[in-house]
Computed example of a mutant assay.
Amino acid sequence: MTPSTAVRPLLPTEARVLATLMEKARTVPDTYPMTLNGLLGGCNQKTSREPVMSLAEAEVLEALDGLRDLGLISESSGGRAARFGHQFQKGYGVPEQSAVLLGLLMLRGPQTAGELRLNAERWYRFADISSVEAFLDELQERSAEKGGALVLKLPRAPGAREQRWAHLLCGPVDLDSLAAGGASVPTAGLAPRVAALEAEVAHLRTALERVCAELGLPAPAAGEPGAD
């Protein structure tokens, strides 16, 4: 199987939406394909997510638009609400087992082969850790003709017994951040989120100043508690 489209690096929000669809298709098939409300709740779960996100509906819709352009989702209009499904295996040209591992890495961040086997129980039952490692090795050694590597085996962390694996669907992994003890953060797609957060802060400050003016109170200066 070969990819149906040349897939660019995903934005973090696109990866979360896509992986959530992949998870729910396997763990709660009765609710799949998913409505927008169901998808929003799945993306913002506080458990089994790394990092935890708090996406707005507009952000999920924007991610769906991007994934649709890449041919990675499908949309149906049965019933009163639109429903969304994923086309991950078709888009990336990988078998089910590889798709499961990539979905888990998108949802939960870097993991060891043993952690992946355990976390995959509700998605797919791998016979043993060696079978997980075999699929990970295959994904890491993927040829350029097929789009190149989709995972990376990370350097062993200090004190760790096993090495973790990370996905490359959002672009290169920031190894410097990992070495400094930080989380693995994809380098692609951060600027738009920073800009959105700055705009939200500016909007909240304007609203606060308006409330203070209505109450006859001085607006807090930048940097004071309640100013940002």
Results as ranks from 00 to 15, higher is better:
114 G>I: 11
115 E>S: 12
197 L>S: 05
175 L>H: 06
139 L>D: 02
36 L>H: 07
117 R>G: 01
144 A>S: 07
55 L>Q: 09
73 I>K: 10
158 P>Q: 04
139 L>F: 05
201 V>E: 02
85 G>E: 08
148 G>S: 01
58 A>T: 04
77 S>M: 12
105 L>F: 04
161 R>I: 14
134 A>V: 05
80 R>W: 08
66 G>P: 04
123 W>A: 01
171 G>Y: 07
206 T>D: 11
81 A>N: 10
54 S>P: 00
45 Q>S: 07
226 G>P: 00
149 A>I: 13
36 L>W: 09
70 L>T: 03
169 L>I: 11
228 D>R: 05
104 L>Y: 06
218 P>Y: 01
206 T>F: 00
73 I>N: 05
210 R>M: 00
109 G>C: 03
44 N>T: 00
11 L>I: 11
74 S>D: 04
113 A>Y: 08
105 L>C: 06
5 T>R: 12
96 E>K: 03
138 E>T: 15
207 A>H: 04
186 P>Y: 15
6 A>L: 08
55 L>A: 08
216 G>E: 04
54 S>I: 03
23 E>L: 09
88 F>T: 13
112 T>N: 02
29 P>W: 12
111 Q>M: 15
186 P>T: 14
130 S>G: 07
105 L>R: 06
71 G>D: 06
13 T>N: 14
160 A>E: 13
142 R>P: 00
29 P>I: 09
109 G>D: 03
207 A>L: 04
117 R>W: 07
168 L>K: 14
145 E>I: 04
62 E>F: 02
77 S>D: 12
122 R>L: 02
110 P>Y: 15
68 R>Q: 10
31 T>F: 15
177 S>H: 11
208 L>Y: 08
5 T>C: 05
83 R>W: 08
69 D>P: 01
19 A>M: 03
146 K>E: 06
198 E>P: 12
136 L>P: 03
199 A>T: 10
179 A>I: 09
215 L>V: 09
52 V>R: 00
88 F>Q: 05
142 R>A: 00
90 K>T: 04
72 L>E: 12
149 A>H: 15
28 V>R: 11
117 R>A: 03
180 A>S: 08
69 D>W: 10
169 L>F: 12
176 D>G: 02
15 A>I: 00
213 A>K: 07
144 A>M: 08
31 T>W: 15
138 E>F: 13
42 G>V: 06
30 D>T: 10
29 P>C: 11
228 D>I: 05
130 S>P: 00
192 P>G: 12
45 Q>C: 02
24 K>S: 01
130 S>M: 01
25 A>K: 10
164 R>N: 13
228 D>W: 04
164 R>F: 15
84 F>N: 01
73 I>M: 09
47 T>S: 06
98 S>K: 13
135 F>H: 14
104 L>K: 03
33 P>C: 09
170 C>D: 04
192 P>C: 11
120 A>Y: 07
190 L>E: 07
169 L>D: 13
88 F>A: 05
99 A>Y: 14
